[in-house]
Simulated scan of single mutants.
Amino acid sequence: MPPTALQHADATAGVGVLKARLTGLSQEEFARDVWARTALLTRRASDFSDLFSAEAVDELTSRRGLRTPFLRVAKDGVTIPDASFTSSAGVGATIGDQLDDTALWCMFADGATLVLQALQRTWGPVADFSARLSTELGHPVQANAYVTPPQNRGFDDHYDVHDVFVLQIAGAKRWLVREPVHPDPLRDQPWTDRRSAVAEAAKGQAHIDTVLEPGDVLYLPRGWLHAAQAQGEVSIHLTLGIHTWTRYALAEQLAQSALALLRDDPQMRGTLPLGVDGPGGEIDAVRERLVAAVTKADSAPLFHRTRRAQARPAPLGPLAQLEAVDGLGPHSRVRLRGQLEARLEGPRLVTRVGWFDFPETDVPLVTRMLDGGVRTAGELGVELAERLLRAGVLVPAEQ
Rank of each mutant, 00 (worst) to 15 (best):
P2N: 13
P3S: 09
T4S: 15
L6P: 00
T12M: 10
A13T: 11
G14N: 07
L18T: 06
W35K: 11
T38A: 14
T38K: 14
T38Y: 00
D50G: 15
V57C: 07
L60K: 08
G65V: 03
L66Y: 05
R67K: 11
F70M: 11
V78A: 13
I80K: 01
T86M: 06
T94H: 05
W105E: 14
W105D: 12
V115C: 11
T122E: 07
G124V: 06
P125Q: 01
E136D: 03
Y146V: 05
V147G: 02
P150H: 10
P150S: 09
Q151S: 14
H162K: 02
D163Y: 10
R174G: 08
E179F: 00
P183S: 14
P185H: 08
R194W: 08
L220G: 00
G223N: 11
E233H: 13
V234R: 13
V234K: 02
L238E: 04
T239E: 07
H243T: 06
W245N: 10
Q253Y: 09
L261W: 02
D264F: 08
V276Q: 11
G278I: 07
E282W: 07
E282N: 12
E282M: 13
V291D: 12
K296S: 13
R305V: 01
R307Y: 06
A311T: 14
L319M: 10
Q321P: 00
Q321Y: 06
A324P: 07
A324N: 04
G338L: 01
A342M: 06
A342D: 08
E345D: 15
L349G: 02
R352D: 05
M369C: 13
L370Q: 08
L380P: 01
G381W: 03
L384N: 02
R387K: 13
L389D: 00
R390T: 05
L394Y: 02
E398F: 00
